[in-house]
Design a protein around this nucleic acid. Structure first.
Lengths: 130, 130
DNA sequence: CCTTGACTTAGAGCGTGCTCCAAGCCTTAG
DNA sequence: CTAAGGCTTGGAGCACGCTCTAAGTCAAGG
């Protein structure tokens, strides 16, 4: 029987600069997110942050929520639920679904506004309006 | 021969409150837009603003640009071109087209982020990430 | 040993886009 | 005449989301 290789115990970790690079979230923003409780990152003996893969995933997810303009407050509520453990999953789901619906609606409005702008571009010659 | 009725000379005008109501842009914002040169609105003898239909159209258009997150600065540049007369139409068109491209790109990113969130919603049970 | 450079912290500062305030003027109703 | 209500102005204030500063620590390279 072939020995099963030991599962990686020491997970790879990343510095704040590496995470900034990987995720496109600035180091400043990462520290800010930690301060306001969106992230809880471990430290080396030196005090420097070490982001686990899990932490990086969370940053990516936060990035997506921000990219869809979810207010920081709501993201805080979301992660407060996550911290609250498995009993909060229904509520988390509801929160994400509500956000999803909001964004879909915004998308529709955006499309509509963009179409109007496109029309204006198409029949250009008009000087300013509708 | 039937007499052709005189064309309406006195165009209908609107108060700031009416325009706010019609366009969804607050009266505060309308005054702000005027202050920063996006709008130039006539006055009654009393000093009260009177918005013409043309003005209202412009407000609607500004609303659309804002709805698509065009920065105020760029909207200012646009209307500076409009004020510059017919010689600036190519430049205006270019500005709108550039904005259009930007928004389309943002739309794509937004869709992508939203899809990722949807996936998370779909296989909910995950505690926080990608 | 010293420098370089990435990191740490608390806290201040900033850009955007409104939003609100205070003081005052007009108009209309009672 | 008076009071209410909507408007005017310049300027201050605000919410959001970072972004930057200052002062200091730490590790590695020359």
């Amino acid at each position: 029987m072939v020995a099963v290789s030991t599962i990686a115990i020491e997970e790879q970790t990343f510095t704040i600069a590496e995470v900034a690079e990987k995720t496109g979230v600035s180091a400043h923003a990462l520290r800010y997110y930690e301060r306001i409780g969106l992230l809880e990152v471990g430290r080396q003996a030196s005090g420097h942050r070490r982001f686990t893969g899990h932490d990086v995933d969370r940053v990516v997810f936060i990035g997506r929520l921000r990219a869809t303009a979810m207010p920081i407050r709501e993201i805080q509520r979301y992660f407060a639920l996550v911290a609250g453990g498995p009993g909060t999953e229904d509520e988390r789901l509801a929160l994400l679904q509500a956000h999803h619906a909001t964004v879909r609606a915004q998308l529709r409005d955006l499309e509509a506004a963009l179409d109007a702008i496109e029309h204006k571009i198409a029949r250009y010659g008009g000087s300013c309006s509708p």
